[in-house]
Design a protein around this nucleic acid. Sequence first.
RNA 1: UCCUGAGUAGCUCAGCUGGUUAGAGCAUCUGACUGUUAAUCAGAGGGUCCCUGGUUCGAGUCCAGGCUCAGGAGCCA
Length: 493
Amino acid sequence: MYFCGSKKYTYMSQRTKIKALLQSQQTDIDVTVKGWVRAFRSNRFIALNDGSTNNNIQIVVDFENTDPALLKRITVGAAISVSGKLIASLGKGQTVEVIAANIDILGDSDPEKYPIQPKKHSLEFLRENAHLRFRTSTFGSIFRLRNSLAFAVHQFFQERGFVYLHTPVITQSDAEGAGEAFHVTNFDLNNIPKTDTGEVDYKQDFFGTSTNLTVSGQLEGELGAMALSDIYTFGPTFRAENSNTTRHLAEFWMIEPEVAFNDLDDNMDLAEDMLKYVIKYALDKNPDDIEFLTQRLQEEEKQKPQNERSEMSLLEKLQFCLDNDFERLTYTEAIDILKESTPNKKKKFQYPIEGWGTDLQSEHERYLVEKHFKKPVILTDYPKAIKAFYMRQNEPDAQGRETVRAMDILFPGIGEIVGGSQREERLDKLEQRMDEMGIPKDELWWYLDTRRFGACEHAGFGLGFERLVLFVTGMGNIRDVIPFPRFPKNAEF
RNA sequence: UCCUGAGUAGCUCAGCUGGUUAGAGCAUCUGACUGUUAAUCAGAGGGUCCCUGGUUCGAGUCCAGGCUCAGGAGCCA
């Protein structure tokens, strides 16, 4: 426990973290190190890890002069404390090692029962052991990177004077229509109060109304931006969609900046700057983890046929992303490119491009990003009919086609990582659109008030944090980049 | 939710057209060895073949239904 007060507490009693030991310029010094045993070889060499880095420190045990009963308890997964001398390593493979003078077993780990072995495990198996998977090199690296990215997000916005706004997790309506919401209720589900007409009587529920978990903080975010100018949210978001993919979670973290007086171009600049900033931060802060995951991905790609392997390594992909401007084009331009594309002409698309107005399929987005431009792409000005009610309407073009000021950022291997728009600030246009789409205006009276009192141009976007972590770690399944994933048929841990 | 594939030892997997006692590598245990890096060598233990039902003299294998997982699609971030 760490207390603030008149007395000073050291919260790491004489323990040196392994990251610091491995970087130590000094040798022949006495140290104490604590961690979990990753491997114990030849009764002599302990690979010890404490999570401060993906590298282990080697502990050398004088087994001939150590109690055999103690040696038997140095098993994979055990927590131990070692004090001894840090020396330049006598063997190859590491620069320094600790010659153990004293070893304490802090917590035993029964080798017959401990599931994590010093070998390759499948990601599926580790997902079933999510409580222990932090102890593997891969997941250690993933969650250190996730931490760095989260911190970098805050630092990016804080440096620019944004206000971190906490939007509610429990909301009254699913007005945005951004997917199915989870209901929140305090009713006894075996005895739900009904009205005379047989409908659920929400008046008797905790909030006196039907409530659910938030599907987006955007609408509340806009309220903040209409006074604080520049805000962002960063919190959990919930969707009850029955999505079974490598890119969807029922509980995920979303970053949603909302900026007054910004138009769509400003919005795109902000999103691109932010993505580059946080990726650069991760590269600078966690080079060892990126390096490890780069190698992991290379090993994994060796299993694939040649034509499915990616041209760039993970490290190269991240660097490439920093060094190049994202390609910006309109939906209409994208349709023209797709129409003229080889796969479309050769009828290789499962959904051929037939005309203007329908939404792009995953295969089309992948073609644009991975084959045509070979870099991140920002698509703008989508057809009005396929986008949300709050997006600002453009003037119809010469052919009478109606679009809105939307933007989607598409990343290689991930697809849509950011979705955003300039918002419709004109009350009449907004109300008309809500009527057309059947959005209840009375429930959103507070949202419409921002258009009644001091409305102004503004824009924002939503970034799926796990999709960003997917990209930076090079992992293939979104369930592996959040500590305890929530998805259909699974809420374990 | 749809399509495809999978479920066999703690893990990763093999098991052919149904046929005695279901196999391998790694892990574990015992012993040997001791500057190892996925240590090595010898031996041992370890199975509800996902579940339920069916066909058959006989089912890990065939059929039906279900459950779970993976990949792809849809929805989206």
